[in-house]
């Protein structure tokens, strides 16, 4: 069932939150986001002198009475926004069991977000990426669109390596209009790859939110004794004494997340660390309007 990955309770608790684009967008339909176009929103924006072609109903006749000049009232125009939710379905996302599996967590987070976005009138498209591949369903609005989105997210199978830049290029081809990008990934790839992806998104002037999904083991490294670890994407093996390297590992993973945060800041993307132990509503609240 597609509903399996949708956290209805969380979505219900978050129904009063709205997810707005921080910048103006070229939406086609009325929505909650500030449009680049001045419109009929009750929110007054500015006055401008009347020119031919302006709608007479927008003339501020009171002002004309005081100044004998025609001014047109400009109002904020709120439009809907397209969202592109991209979920990392590389092999490394299969780590964890049950609800704490990274891919499952990412799908739940994405499904809940998609549900909320559709409810607020935005159009949402979703897809997954691994290796250089991208599987995407196009954005659409309407509550009923949640079903194909959930089906898509439910059907994700982890495989391949984590790559960001190439799939993003493909996604940008689809989302040429104003759209915000949501990337849900463990980002266990080269930092240069991540930086390149962020550069692309910034160049395309896409608002971007990155949910960095990590399992608790990847953060705390609570293993004991000597163990042989097999990398889930590269098949690389390493034998380590977990007790001996725990501190070093923790230090390195902390540095990694700090660098990612810094990169995201640099490329004007929002970085949200989302450990699988964290309820999905918490990272969502972080990006919501409060």
């Amino acid at each position: 069932m597609a509903n399996g990955i949708l956290d209805i309770e969380t979505a219900s608790r978050l129904r009063r939150f709205y997810f707005r684009s921080p910048s103006r967008v070229r939406g086609r339909k009325a929505g909650i986001h500030k449009s680049l176009y001045k419109g009929i929103s009750p929110d007054f924006l500015e006055y401008k002198e009347y020119n031919r072609g302006d709608e007479l109903r927008q003339v501020d006749w009171r002002l004309y009475g005081r100044h004998d000049r025609l001014y047109v009232k400009k109002f904020e125009d709120e439009v809907n926004l397209a969202w592109c939710i991209l979920v990392d379905s590389s092999a490394s996302m299969s780590y964890g069991e049950g609800g704490s599996q990274k891919l499952r967590y990412a799908a739940t987070l994405s499904a809940t977000l998609a549900y909320l976005l559709l409810r607020q009138g935005d159009s949402v498209g979703a897809g997954s990426f691994s290796g250089n591949g991208l599987s995407l369903i196009p954005p659409r609005a309407g509550n009923s669109y949640i079903t194909p989105l959930l089906d898509k997210l439910e059907s994700l199978k982890p495989s391949g390596r984590t790559a960001l830049a190439e799939p993003l290029l493909k996604a940008l081809e689809v989302f040429k209009q104003d759209a915000s990008f949501v990337i849900v990934s463990d980002l266990l790839t080269d930092e240069s790859e991540i930086e390149k992806a962020l550069q692309l998104l910034k160049a395309a002037k896409k608002e971007t939110v990155i949910f960095h999904v990590l399992h608790e083991d990847e953060i705390d490294f609570g293993f004991r004794g000597p163990l042989e670890f097999l990398d889930m994407e590269s098949d690389e093996k390493v034998i380590v004494d977990a007790d001996a390297i725990r501190d070093g590992y923790r230090k390195r993973i902390r540095e990694f997340t700090e660098r990612l945060k810094s990169l995201c800041h640099e490329y004007e993307s929002r970085y949200v660390l989302s450990p699988t132990s964290r309820p999905v509503e918490e990272p969502l609240i972080e990006i919501a309007d409060k």
Binding site: E218, L227, F229, E236, I239, V240, I245, G248, I253
Partner: peptide, 28 residues
């Protein structure tokens, strides 16, 4: 035996283990 045939564990962030091993290996 403990070094060679310990439990094999699949793990996503092996590259950080490799990086960390260098610090601990001498002590270990």
């Amino acid at each position: 035996i403990s070094r060679k045939s310990g439990v094999v564990k699949k793990f996503p962030a092996v590259r950080f283990l490799i990086a960390s091993r260098g610090d601990a290996s001498a002590r270990s």
